[in-house]
Every structure is written in C-alpha cells, then in structure tokens.
Design a protein around this nucleic acid. Structure first.
Length: 252
DNA sequence: AATGCGTCCAACCGCAAGGAT
DNA sequence: AATCCTTGCGGTTGGACGCAT
C-alpha cells in the first residue's frame, strides 16, 4: 500500500489565492491556531490542499512577516550564512526575523547570486572565480590553444588569471594535472605602494637583488612607479615569479 | 500598438524526516 | 519492526509584469 496523496487533487483549487480564500485562512488560524494542515482546508471551508494552505500562511499571510526590500545588512547576513550553511534556506531564514525561506531562496537566486558574480565570487563556493572564457586549454602536442580568451574590460585593481590544464583527447574532457598546473595572472598598472605589502613580490625582489648584486643594498624605489604585473605559478615545485623582476632589470 | 524577451516571485512538486499507531 | 501520516524542506515552474524593439 503506497502513500496516500496529501489531498484529493480533483476537488482542490490551484494557482493564485483569491482575497476571499486568504481571509478564510486568516480567520480560521486566528481562531484555531496553526497546525493540522491536512484537516484545515475542510474545517476552514477552503478548496485547497493542506500543503497549499500552510505555504500560503507561512510565506504570505503570517502577521510577523517583514515586507519590503532586503537591507544591505540582511544581504551580508544571507551571504555569510550561505557560505556557512549552503542552501539551507530554512536555517538562514531562522536567523532573519520576518523573512521566509522561500523569500530568501528567491532573493538569493535573483539578486545575491548576481551581486557575488559581479564581485568576482563564485556564489556556490564563495571563492574568487576566474572568468570561464579565460581558461585556455593548451595542447602541448600541437602548441595550439583551441579556445582563445574573449575580450572583456578589466577594472582597476582587478586581477585576471589563466589556468593551463591538460586536455584528455580520448574523452574531450579537461582535467588538472598537478605536474603541469600553470597559473598565469595579469593585472592593470598599479603603484609600487599598492604591491609593497605583497610578500610574494617582496620575496622575488629580494632574491633578484641577491642574484644581481650579492649583498649590495639597493633602494627599492628603483622599481618603476607604474607597470603591468605578470605573475606565474608553476605546479611543479610551486615556483613563483613575476615580471617585477624583469621590469627592474630593464630599469637598471 | 504589438510582440518578444528577461526578471521576479508565489505556488507547486517530490522527497525525506520524524512521530504515531 | 513495519507501516502510515503529517510536516517541512529545497528545487522547479509558470504566470504576471516591465522594458526594449
């Protein structure tokens, strides 16, 4: 014997609720309280299934619901909780008085997802995302890059990375080979002050100085004030370098 | 004015958890 | 222990609406 349906579908209304139905539901719940959703429609004189009544009450008719747009603070709470809990909308809603799980879910899908993407953040992982169109699949056999990056506009301070992965010719899938994990990045010209706090740049700079001049001390201000920075990370041995070095060599 | 398209969101659906029998 | 029932959750749908052409 299978599960009995939640209601008799032939005798129930579907779709948008009318004002009269809303009033019946509100009046009934005011009198008898929430619960017993299965029997509620019959008792309240509604041609709806219990599930539908529950949803209507929880998501729309409850008196404690907050109406209107989400505030910036609420946005941040949702983003932080989603990073922590994932798509657990009911848990997120529990932390936002007056908001429902359905409302938050809709808001996430229509607004916050886009907001995060525009910030360069993957809405599912909450980690920085690389533009898909800039992933270059480099074929070492032919030295041909089958998928060229598309044009797009970089913003000041933005950093674009390219991953070079190995392509599997048998099943046309790409996969990351840890031995050839080559990550390239490029950024717009920036001031030296902006990179001064970057350990990686300073480390490279220090090594380069030692290579060129031994223990001789040189002023770090000899680095050009404005330049395009190109960095690369090699998976094999995790070697890192950047063209700050080259720029400095040219300057010297 | 008509049409097409994208966005928003209320409502639906299937499923699972947990309590009752 | 097995089955049934109720409730709640998350994914999806479809209609209303606004805007561009």
């Amino acid at each position: 014997m299978g599960r009995s349906p939640c209601c008799e579908k032939e005798h129930t209304n579907k779709g948008a609720w009318t004002k009269e139905e809303d009033e019946r539901l509100i009046n009934y719940i005011k009198k008898h309280g929430e619960g017993c959703w299965r029997s509620l429609p019959k008792s309240a004189g509604l041609l709806r299934c219990g599930k539908s009544c529950r949803l209507r009450w929880i998501n729309y008719l409850r008196p404690d619901l907050k109406r209107g747009n989400f505030t910036e603070d609420e946005d941040e709470v949702i983003i932080n909780l989603h990073a922590l809990l994932g798509n657990k909308w009911s848990l997120i809603a529990a932390r936002l008085p007056g908001r429902t799980d359905n409302e938050i879910k809709n808001y996430w899908n229509t607004h916050i997802k886009r907001k995060l993407i525009s910030r360069g953040i993957d809405p599912q992982t909450h980690k920085p995302s690389y533009p898909k169109d800039n992933i270059i699949n480099y074929d070492p056999e032919t030295s041909i890059s089958p998928k060229q990056p598309q044009n797009f506009t970089m913003q000041s301070g933005q950093n674009i990375s390219f991953n070079v992965t190995k392509s599997d010719s048998n099943n046309s899938n790409n996969y990351e080979d840890p031995r050839i994990n080559l990550e390239l990045s490029i950024s717009l010209p920036q001031s030296y002050d902006a990179i001064k706090g970057c350990d990686e740049h300073l480390k490279v700079e220090k090594i380069n100085r030692q290579e060129l001049f031994g223990s001789k001390s040189l002023s770090i201000s000899s680095i050009p004030k404005q330049f395009v920075c190109l960095c690369y990370n090699l998976g094999n041995g995790s070697r890192t370098a950047c063209n700050c070095v080259t720029m400095k060599r040219y300057k010297l």
